[in-house]
Amino acid sequence: MELIVALGIGVLTGSGVWLLLRPRTFQVIIGLSLLSYAVNLFIFSTGGLKTGQPPILPPGGEGNLLEYADPLPQALVLTAIVISFATTALFLVVLLAARGLTGTDHVDGRERER
């Protein structure tokens, strides 16, 4: 499972960075979204990858940290998802405004001269 998650993060990051460096605003925003997925997966993985483990120790029982899913990274991921979603939406609005004001979807607001 570690390998799949690691590959997933790697592929998402790689495509995200590549798209981020492209000249069209739409590519940039997709790149940012992919990067934020990669980062969310990464945060999630810092708690350790476990299947079928409870995040809360049973009441009264002896807790064992090895049979326990850390809930904190999951809470962090939730916050990170909400924030990156909101900022990406804001970026989308600015992107549309820039398209309307400059008449082009180039990130610099003008086409490169040929």
Binding site: L20, T25, V28, L32, L35, S36, V39, I83, S84, T87, T88, L90, F91, V94, L95, A97, A98, L101, T102, V107, D108, G109
Partner: peptide, 16 residues
């Protein structure tokens, strides 16, 4: 808006 577009993109990456 053009400057803001760059500013937001840079800061989103920084946040990640």
């Amino acid at each position: 808006v053009r400057a803001g577009l760059h500013y937001i993109a840079v800061n989103l990456v920084a946040a990640l």
